[in-house]
Computed example of a mutant assay.
Amino acid sequence: MAEKIRPVEQMLELSDDEAVSAEHLDSQVQKAQEQLVQLKRQQEQIEKQKRELEELSRRQEELENGRAEMTDKLTRALVVLEREAYSVQNRLEQIRLARESFAQHLELVEAIDPRSWNPSDLHKELSRALSTVDDARTEYGEQRSRLQATGATAGEAPLPDVTSDAYEAHNGRSFSQWFQIGVALTLPLIIFGAIALALFFWMASK
């Protein structure tokens, strides 16, 4: 431990034998300077620790703010994505049902072959075929409305309207209507031809 320095007044009252030598004073001054250097180093160390603590506190505050921010954003994003996922799943289900329905009705419509009909059952076959086409048109319109209600995504091609040119001919008449008109016009000729053919075979048999 450093020697305690006596007050100047006490030193002046000392006798010559007890007076502090010049060497002793130099030693005391040197010790005092060393103590000042040590105190300065301690002060610098304290300042360094203070800066480190302030930086640590700043980073902790940054962590808390960032954590709170991202917790809020991620929570809200999950809610939005849950809604989007439900909407997408609902639309995919509607698309699946529409696809199955369209495939079934397409198979039935393509199976219509007037050339294979029995002339004696023409009215029955025609009514059945028209019913098949009308059912397909009705189902198409209903499924199209459901798909539009679920909302189309960007870049998705819309389904054609039920009353588009693909289903109607000129003057606003549908294919089935024109077909009925054609049958009505040719039916008398068919009946007349059948009667004439029957008379021909009857006369030939005599």
Rank of each mutant, 00 (worst) to 15 (best):
E82P: 08
S87Q: 09
W117P: 05
Q104G: 06
L74W: 03
F179D: 08
R83W: 09
A149F: 03
E107V: 10
E100N: 09
F192L: 13
A111V: 08
L92F: 05
N171Q: 07
N171Y: 00
F102A: 11
A166H: 15
H170K: 14
Y140I: 00
I112P: 08
E69A: 01
V183Y: 12
E110G: 10
D165N: 15
G151Y: 07
R146F: 05
L97N: 07
S145E: 06
R146I: 09
I195M: 11
L187G: 06
R115L: 12
R83E: 09
E125C: 12
Q180E: 14
N171R: 03
Q180R: 14
E84V: 10
N90Q: 15
L197P: 15
A103L: 03
A184D: 13
L63R: 01
V88D: 01
R173T: 02
R83Q: 09
S176W: 14
S174W: 07
T132R: 04
I181A: 09
E139F: 06
F201I: 08
I195C: 10
N171K: 00
R146W: 12
W202R: 15
S127M: 12
S176K: 10
Q148C: 02
S131W: 05
A154D: 00
A136D: 08
E62V: 05
A166E: 13
F102M: 15
Q148D: 04
I191K: 13
E93Y: 10
E142K: 09
T163Y: 11
A85K: 13
I181T: 08
Q180T: 10
L63F: 06
A194T: 08
L199A: 12
A198N: 13
P114R: 08
E142C: 00
R173Y: 12
Q89V: 14
S164C: 10
L159D: 04
L97W: 06
Q94A: 10
R91K: 15
P188L: 12
E100W: 13
A149P: 02
E93C: 04
L81H: 07
L97G: 04
V133C: 04
Q177R: 10
R67M: 01
E82A: 11
G151H: 05
T153V: 09
L126G: 05
F175C: 02
Q180G: 09
E93F: 10
A198G: 12
D121A: 07
S164W: 02
G155A: 04
A98N: 09
S164K: 02
A129L: 08
R91W: 07
T163A: 09
